[in-house]
C-alpha cells in the first residue's frame, strides 16, 4: 500500500483486494460482539479535516477510527481558524506539529488532499475532493457488491447520473475497473465530461437499454440546481429519462442490486419505493463504510508491510 489514499489509482488490484478482505475479516471479528472496539491504533491520532459539511462521511470515519482505538480530532473548517483565512498549508503545518498520524480530508477543491500530502508526514486519506475522487466510497461500494453478489470480476455495473460533477463516479470507475468489473456510465451528454471516452468504461445515453444488462445500478445524486446552468431542462425531464422508478427497476435482472452513495434526492434520481426495496443496498452501504474505513486506517497506519 502507498502511504496515502488520494485516489482509486493509488490501489492496485492486490491492494484493493487486501482492503476488502481486511474489511471482511473485521466485520466477521466484530459481528455479534458487545465490545465493538479493537486496540489496534491505540495512541495514534487521526484528524478529520473537513472543509465541507458532510456529517455522514465524517461520522463514518470517526467511528472507524474510534473502533480502532485511535484518538480522533474533528477539525471542521467552519468556526475555526480556517474560516478566518488560514491557508491549507498553515493548517497542515499545525496538524503536523500536533503529531497527526493520519489526516482524513474533505475539501471542495479537487487536488487539495494531494497538496496536503506534500506538507504532512502522516498518511492522508481523501474523504472527497471537489469533483475529483472519493476513494473510500468506491471501496465501500465494491465491498457491498462483493458481499451481495459474491464477486467483482465480470460484474456489470451501471453508474447513472451526474458523472461530470461526481467524485464518486470517478473513484468507482477506476476501482471497479481495477477489480475486474465492467462499468457503463449512463447520463445525458451534458453531464458526462469531455474526454470520458478515455475512461475504462462504456458510455450510454439510454438508461432503459442498459438496465436489463447489468448486475448493479448505482444512482448518483443529481442536484436540481444543475438545470439552472442548462445541464438539463427540468427536474421532471431528468427524472423521466434518467430516474430509477419501480417500472425501470422491473427491467433489471432478478438478482441485480440498486446502490446510492447518499444523500438521496428521492423522487429525482431514485423513487422512494426503489430506495426502500429489497434490492436496495443503501443502508448496508453505510454500515460497510465503517468497516471499509477501519480497514483503510489499519492498513495505512499499521506501518510498512512485512
Amino acid at each position: 500500500m502507498k502511504r496515502h489514499l488520494l485516489e482509486a489509482a493509488d490501489l492496485d488490484r492486490d491492494d484493493a483486494t487486501l482492503v476488502l478482505d481486511t474489511a471482511a475479516q473485521i466485520d466477521q471479528a466484530l459481528s455479534g460482539r458487545e465490545v465493538k472496539k479493537l486496540p489496534t491504533l491505540r495512541g495514534r491520532t487521526v484528524v478529520n479535516l473537513f472543509y465541507e459539511d458532510s456529517t455522514r462521511t465524517r461520522i463514518s470515519f470517526e467511528l472507524a477510527a474510534k473502533r480502532l482505538s485511535a484518538d480522533v480530532i474533528n477539525f471542521s473548517a467552519k468556526g475555526s481558524s480556517v474560516s478566518k483565512g488560514e491557508s491549507l498549508k498553515d493548517t497542515a503545518l499545525t496538524l503536523e506539529a500536533m503529531g497527526a498520524d493520519a489526516v482524513v480530508v474533505r475539501h471542495s477543491s479537487s487536488g487539495a488532499p494531494h497538496r496536503l500530502a506534500g506538507w504532512v508526514r502522516g498518511s492522508v486519506v481523501n474523504a472527497g475532493d471537489g469533483t475529483h475522487e472519493h476513494p473510500t466510497q468506491a471501496l465501500l461500494d465494491a465491498y457491498t457488491i462483493r458481499r451481495r453478489l459474491g464477486r467483482l470480476e465480470g460484474v456489470r455495473v451501471a453508474i447513472v447520473g451526474d458523472v461530470l460533477h461526481s467524485r464518486v463516479a470517478r473513484s468507482n470507475v477506476g476501482l471497479l475497473h481495477t477489480l475486474g468489473a465492467e462499468v457503463t456510465l449512463v447520463a445525458p451528454p451534458t453531464l458526462l465530461p469531455v474526454g470520458v471516452g478515455s475512461w475504462p468504461a462504456e458510455v450510454s445515453y439510454d438508461l432503459d437499454a442498459v438496465l436489463p444488462k447489468v448486475d448493479v445500478v448505482m444512482m448518483l445524486r443529481v442536484q436540481a440546481e444543475r438545470m439552472n446552468a442548462s445541464f438539463f431542462p427540468s427536474a421532471r425531464e431528468y427524472s423521466r429519462r434518467y430516474g430509477l422508478d419501480a417500472r425501470r427497476m422491473g427491467a433489471l435482472p432478478d438478482d441485480a442490486i440498486v446502490m446510492h452513495p447518499g444523500p438521496m434526492n428521492r423522487g429525482m434520481e431514485i423513487a422512494a419505493d426503489v430506495a426502500d426495496s429489497a434490492r436496495s443496498t443503501i443502508v448496508e452501504q453505510v454500515a460497510n463504510g465503517v468497516s471499509t474505513r477501519m480497514a483503510v486506517l489499519y492498513l495505512l497506519l499499521g506501518g510498512s508491510p512485512q
Binding site: D21, I26, A29, L38, T40, L68, G302, G303, Q306
Partner: peptide, 22 residues
C-alpha cells in the same frame, strides 16, 4: 481468534493480512 488487530508490534512489524475470527 485472529490477534493481528491486538498486536503491540504494529509500528515495528507493519501490517499483515487479517485471518478469520470464528
Amino acid at each position: 481468534v485472529d490477534i493481528t488487530l491486538y498486536r503491540d508490534d504494529l509500528r515495528r512489524r507493519g501490517v499483515r493480512a487479517l485471518e478469520p475470527t470464528e
